[in-house]
Amino acid sequence: MSVLRRLLCLSLLLLSPFVQAEPRLTPFDAGSPAALRQANAGHAFVLVFWSVHCAPCFAEMAQWRAYRKQFPGIPIVQVATESLDESAAIVNVLDRYDAGTTGHRAFADDYAEKIRYAVDPAWRGETPKVYFYDREHKRIARSGALDPDWARRWFEQQSR
């Protein structure tokens, strides 16, 4: 391939909305919790961990989609606790339960205890595990299926 064609290709790629689509899965590593707090300084956000083994997690995908729509000012970051090596299994679940959404993440590698520790040393890997960060980034951790009434109240409070 000629240099000219490479340049042409590159410039078209940069211009093109067609190829700028966000990748389906991006990595979440031990540095990600701090990076998320920094990116959301002064703002509330929600960090959701789920697993391909976790049937209760699948059921909650629709709920997160609804909150995202109703409270667009509060970012919801969903992270699969399997490594990116398991992308096929993760995307298989997303296609079925959360088709069409972007911004999903997965553990960057299978050193899960290190990533979990960076999130919360007390988290033992059970899913769903959700962290609700308020504007001051004081957080509430929830394990297991979420009480939707409680979650809705939290979102409403943070949206005021």
Partner: peptide, 14 residues
């Protein structure tokens, strides 16, 4: 969108 398609075709080999 058209530029995207062209880019996609041109860049297919890459």
């Amino acid at each position: 969108m058209r530029s995207g398609l062209v880019a996609a075709l041109l860049c297919a080999s890459i």
